[in-house]
Amino acid sequence: MRDPGLLVMLLATGAGLVLGPQRWKATLAGASASILAMLATLAFVVALPADIVWSVAWAVVAAMAIATWLPRLGAALPVALACSAGAVGGGLSATVPNQLLFVAILALSTVMTAGGARRDWALAPKVVAGWLLAIAALNATLTVLPVTPGYLPDHME
């Protein structure tokens, strides 16, 4: 199985990492934009091919992880990335029955991570960003390798 909830949580963690070190207004704007983007996607966007959505999601996770390491980030890029995370999160959640739960996952994880990364421009978020980048790289690689992923059943003919 592919669990969209876990990937939504990873997106939210990435969003929190890039938003946390910003001024509180930018953090708040970014988190709000992320949630609104997710709600807008759920409300107005028709379900897209799952493989495309998942690939874009991993790219966004990786981009946020890399952005965490960039000096002098500014406010615009983190907010834009958080917004992207929310939109992609909405795409991932388009077919689940309990969509509001996934919105809550996004909101909660973003806020928790931003809070943890907020205190000072410390290197701990960069370490966590390294973990995110590793996870994104692994999963993005899995989609291009000629292997049967474990979530695909076998002996189905």
Binding site: D3, M9, T13, L17, L101, M112, A117
Partner: peptide, 22 residues
Amino acid sequence: RFVARALAPAMGLVAVPAAAHT
């Protein structure tokens, strides 16, 4: 403090794995 800082964002990674499973 580094350990605490690393753990706090990491908690975002495990906020609701049980609730996320189906």
